[in-house]
């Protein structure tokens, strides 16, 4: 600690420590603590807050699992289903992004060095200057029943009736995958770029087919990058709101949409907080479990 102060000087050290503490406490710990607190409370009108009914309760969590006490079903099937579906769909989006981005990242990082690689990266970034809402709506135009894709398919005579991509959730998957593609490409690119090209050639020289080179040499080396890319995409997909709102089919809800309704139209903050906490914890547990499975430590992800 004294070494830290000596190295950076009193002023800078103090600033650094305060900034980090401020960041962690004010931006992360406090709001989440409030949410956690909320989630265990009853939804009371302002007048009753602090009164005798303002006690801690598990009812908000119970509601997610079992539904309202008066309902006929044993479980809250609707919400649980949406929850499960959100997690599974997010896994899908993550896999799609990985499948799309790994070849691109490999190509830019190991095959096309220099100017061409730089212009490819630029091409990847440029679309993200357009804001998220605009991008989502442009996907609606692309995938709508009278959209560009259907028009092309029909004019080519491949289909006679337009396909409802929105209802089939194709637009949603496409939109979500597209939204987080950069968060996958860059960690992958960084990780693959640091691999000595000679190792790839050595593997090839020893007779390895291309897929085994990736499986045994490139991917193990890029594992931290793969982990951080997948974690980011999975977490953000599961927590996305705009894309599901705009691109999701009428019958398919995203868990965040339910949370949003509790907070917003439902006006039930404690209930929304409980749902949000469950989503957060589920995502964390899932990610940690997968990392455990692939023997990746948290430190590696931050590399």
């Amino acid at each position: 600690m004294t070494g830290f102060f000596q190295r950076n000087g009193i002023a800078i050290s103090t600033y650094l420590i305060l900034a980090v503490v401020f960041w962690v406490v004010l931006m992360i710990v406090l709001p989440q603590a409030y949410m956690l607190d909320f989630s265990f409370r009853n939804n009371l009108p302002p007048a009753k807050i602090g009164g005798p009914e303002d006690v801690y309760t598990l009812s908000n969590y119970r509601y997610l699992v079992f539904g309202s006490p008066g309902s006929a079903d044993a479980f809250n099937y609707l919400h649980l289903q949406v929850f499960l579906r959100t997690i599974i769909a997010s896994i899908f989006v993550t896999l799609i992004d990985f499948a799309l981005c790994y070849p691109i990242a490999y190509y830019i990082a190991q095959v096309a060095k220099g100017g061409f690689a730089r212009s490819m990266i630029l091409l990847l970034i440029l679309p993200f200057w357009v804001n998220e809402i605009l991008r989502a709506f442009s996907f609606r135009i692309l995938f709508g029943t009278s959209g560009v894709i259907n028009a092309v398919l029909q004019s080519l005579g491949i289909v006679d009736q337009p396909i409802d991509f929105l209802r089939a959730d194709v637009a949603l998957y496409a939109g979500l995958s597209y939204a987080y593609i950069l968060l996958m490409v860059f960690p992958l690119y960084n990780a693959i770029e640091s691999l000595d090209h000679n190792q790839i050639e050595a593997a090839r020289d020893l007779g390895s087919p291309w897929w085994r080179i990736h499986w045994r040499v490139v991917m193990p080396h890029a594992k931290p990058g793969i982990a951080s890319g997948c974690t980011l995409v999975f977490m953000l997909s599961a927590g996305a709101l705009a894309a599901p709102q705009i691109l999701g089919g009428p019958s398919s809800l995203w868990f965040t949409q339910i949370i949003y309704r509790w907070f917003n139209t439902g006006g039930n903050w404690p209930q929304g907080a409980a749902y949000a906490i469950v989503l957060l914890l589920a995502c964390l547990v899932f990610v940690l479990a997968v990392m455990r499975l692939f023997k990746i430590s948290l430190g590696e992800i931050a590399r």
Binding site: D196, N198, Q199, E201, A202, A203, R204, D205, L206, G207, S208, P209, R216, V217, P220, H221
Partner: peptide
């Protein structure tokens, strides 16, 4: 291709697989 030739190359920097 190099994977099909009866040769094996030892690289200037060895290129062992560190993992």
């Amino acid at each position: 291709g190099p994977n099909k030739r009866p040769t094996a190359l030892i690289f200037q920097n060895l290129a062992l697989f560190p993992l």
